[in-house]
Write a protein that binds this DNA or RNA. Structure first.
Lengths: 189, 189
DNA sequence: AGTATAGGCCAACAAGTGTTGACAAACCAG
DNA sequence: CTGGTTTGTCAACACTTGTTGGCCTATACT
């Protein structure tokens, strides 16, 4: 009846493996991040990875869990939503390797791409919905916002286009915030 | 003194290999597109790929050549530039596998990412420059346009976010064209 | 004609992949 | 202490990867 599993000593190892996995997946993508490289970085044996996560896919599934933790937009002043959103994305992206593990993998791995679609559908769309007047336009507006924000992540962190890398956090908020705002509350076309 | 090399019989084979390579690279990314798979699709022996392109890297370098063929924006009415640009990107992307080979590879392959940076610097920036009033803002505006356009490619063709996939060409032009226009001729922030 | 050369295929290599099973050490309950 | 379970290591597996060299065949030149 006791649902709470005892804290096993191996939990620490699992966490170490997960952290190493996230870092390798984020830097190298799914295929180039080898189990051996992950194990080496975590300073354990490759066999442990298999024992605790079953397979490379299982490891990735566990490592690429990702929560955007989007704030309640209804509690914000209408005109600030865009900028807050941009700032929040920057925070979440840079607060760990989860997002980049997922993004890099999603480009060559179908399962990762599907997970990205799920995150969009279950986290982005619902969070954004309350800020949009006409409910019929929610999916389109959410989609357009995704193109802008993911495009920013792609150009800044993955492709590293110099002018996009050079922009400071404050500038990004000031430059892209209004565009997001417009996609939320402005006319569609 | 005759610079023009005779058309060898093997040129056809090379072209077949390149076409197959582009398709595999575009669909699978750099690492998962194996030389054997490419050779099988081209209906030749894997050894031929090595003979004609030296290595997998060499093959990719030859396959991922990419020309955006951006039009002369100075010849266009000021207010149409954004929409024309979006339409042009859609055309070029969908006219072959080159762009997606490059995009998918650039996410996990450093050399491909650098090539993307070069294309941005040598094709996008110069083409866009004449449409921008204040020359100091050219790199930033070009960078912001890149985030929007590459984000569209990412969400629509790679991640396949349903609402972005659902949009028709005409709608995309109508929805994203003005955003690009604003990035070119509007105030920066 | 004959011969050099280009085009192409085959089999194999060395290295690296995910994955497995057997076995040792550490831990904990009785 | 003793027995069993957990945690970890080692070596090896079956397979795939990029890459190589040898060999055959068709073409092209003289």
């Amino acid at each position: 009846m006791d649902d709470i599993p005892k804290a096993r000593r191996s939990d620490a190892t699992k966490a170490t493996i997960l952290a190493a996995a996230r870092e390798r997946f984020a830097h190298d993508g799914y295929e180039r991040a080898t189990i051996r490289a992950i194990a080496t970085q975590a300073e354990i044996d490759p066999a442990m990875v298999m024992r605790y996560f079953g397979s490379k896919e299982g490891l990735f599934a566990a490592a690429a869990q990702f929560d955007l933790r989007l704030p309640d937009l209804a509690a914000l002043p209408r005109e600030e939503i865009g900028q807050v959103l941009v700032g929040h994305f920057l925070d979440v992206w840079e607060s760990g390797d989860n997002f980049f593990a997922l993004l890099r993998a999603a480009v060559t791995n179908e399962a990762a791409a599907e997970r990205m679609q799920r995150i969009f559908a279950t986290q982005v769309v619902p969070a954004i919905a309350p800020a949009i007047a006409d409910p019929k336009t929610i999916p389109i507006r959410a989609g357009l916002i995704a193109t802008q924000m993911l495009g920013l992540a792609l150009c800044r962190y993955v492709l590293r286009l110099p002018p996009v890398v050079a922009l400071q956090r404050e500038q990004l908020i000031e430059l892209i915030g209004p565009a997001i705002q417009q996609r939320l509350t402005g006319p569609l076309a």
